[in-house]
Structures are given as C-alpha cells and as structure tokens.
Design a protein around this nucleic acid. Structure first.
Lengths: 139, 139
DNA sequence: GAGCAATAATTGGTGACGTCAATAGTTGTT
DNA sequence: AACAACTATTGACGTCACCAATTATTGCTC
C-alpha cells in the first residue's frame, strides 16, 4: 500500500483517465470521440435537448457543446432546430443516421466497459455502479 | 436511468475528471498540480526512484516526467542524483523541503477525498476502494 | 411600455495535458 | 568492434477545460 494508490480520490482520477482512453480508441474508427458519443447517447434518451441542457447534464462547457454539435451535424447525425418558445435557444435532435450509428456501436460500447471491469463479477459491478452513482449525484 | 450515466465506464470517466479538479484546486495555492503531488507521494514511499520508474508506475509519459521533476527541482523539493550503476539514468530523491511540504498537505489531501466521498459511510468507502484497486491492478 | 438585467448560443484565447517522433549518451550483446 | 536496446530529453501537434467577450433574445421592473 504505497504512494498515492492508497488514495481513493487519486484512484478515481487514474481510472477515469484509463476509461476515457478505452472509449476513445474504440470510437477512433468512427471519427468521433467520447464527448460526441456522450452527446449522442444523451439525445437518444431525451428526444431533443437544448444546448444549455446538454452543457448542464454532461458537464461540458457551453462553448464546447457548440463544437461538438457542429461536428455531429457535419456527419449528419444531429440537427439544430429552432426552439418554438424561445428564439435564443436551439433544440438538438438525433437524425436517423445518428440513431443507426448508435445501434451499430451499442454492443462495442458495452464491450469497453466489460474490459474495464473484467476483474469484477456481476454482483460487484452492480455494487460499484451504485456507489459511483451516489458520488456522482452530489452537488 | 438515462443516457450514458447508466454506464459504469462513463461514470468512472466523469468522476475521474471531478476528482482531478478537486485535487488541483486544493494544490493551487502551492503552485503545484496533481501530477507533481503524485510524484512527491510516490517518492515518499520509495526513497529514490529512476525517472523511468516514475513514468511506469504513475502512468505519465517519460517526457512529462522531465518537466515535472524540473518543476519540483526548481522548488527545491527533489534532487536528481546520478545513478551509481547506470550513467544513463538518474535517481530522483525527496529533499527535506519536499518531505515537510508533504507533511503540511497530508491532511488537506485527505479532506479532498473526504469531500468527494461524502455520501458514503466508512464501510462503503472501503468497499469502493477495494473494487477500484482490483480494476486498477489489471494489465 | 421603456429600460435593463439575465440568458442562449457563439467566438476567441490561454494553459494543461496525452501522444508521438527524434536525438544524444550509455549499456549490453554478439 | 559493431549494433540493438534503453534513459533522459526536446519538440511538435491535437484535445480539452476554463474564462472573457459578443450578439440576439427574453423577462423583469418601475
């Protein structure tokens, strides 16, 4: 038990880096990165989201959202639609292209998490997931 | 249970970012960053380490180690000593200044992890720590 | 209902960071 | 003696988090 490895906070930091790397290498061939993937999967569960909603929910800076949605739009995976009740904001929606991309990579994404959590059995994975969720739901 | 938040791999990624941020803000006043702190704490437990050992153990690129050790040296917290058996490598050791800095920040570091894990009771923290260690010890 | 603070998207800049390629000096091997 | 492998180092490139400023629009307030 030596050095920083004994520290849970530091462990989280290191494993977060590794997890991000794994996701990015798996996404590499598609030309997207983890951040794009996060946006797509959020949209898949919400049927349209304002950019500021994406920023708040995913934790990315508003200025970062602009670039991400630009990229996705160029690939035809999302569309910006004017918000009916507020002309300042735009609603980002998934296109059919985006939806079918998600279906195609769904299983590959699960494989990434599987690799990462390989040493844990199903019950332990549930435990870990529950603990992490509790931490994540903090202000 | 919507979007990527249901995915343990993604949760790890997000919490890793948050953990790193917390560490960095706590270290801000000292002029160091998390990476420097990691080097210091590794050295505290090893009584001298080759730079390539730091690179391998902490997971930073060898070229990143150079800059980190440069910074620490400028602050008088570490020293580079020629390795007796191999003139290619250098041994990095903690100075008294570095050691006393670690003592001073020891408790502040624990507070960071405490904040992060606030929603968990001691037994749950142990569980989390054990699970993360098992994942971290993967090849 | 006119003026003004707050908000949504956007642009631009800065510093930290991961990654890779290349180099000089040194070691071990054959 | 020649050559492959290794250590520390430098430099370059793209990504990313963070912050400030701008434009268009909305809601509040007096």
């Amino acid at each position: 038990m030596r050095g920083l490895h004994a520290d849970t906070g530091y462990l989280l930091y290191r494993l977060g880096l590794r997890s991000g790397q794994l996701f990015n290498t798996f996404l590499q061939e598609s030309g997207l990165r983890l951040r794009h993937y996060a946006v797509l999967r959020y949209l898949a569960g919400s049927e349209g989201a304002l950019q500021r909603e994406l920023s708040a929910q995913l934790g990315y800076d508003p200025s970062a959202i602009v670039g991400l949605v630009d990229d996705l739009e160029k690939l035809g995976m999302t569309e910006r639609r004017p918000s009916p009740d507020d002309r300042r904001s735009k609603t980002v929606v998934l296109t059919d292209t985006g939806r079918s991309f998600l279906r195609g990579t769904d299983e590959a994404g699960r494989r990434v998490t599987n690799d990462l959590l390989a040493p844990l059995d199903p019950a332990e994975r549930d435990t870990l997931q529950a603990l992490l969720l509790r931490i994540a739901d903090q202000p």
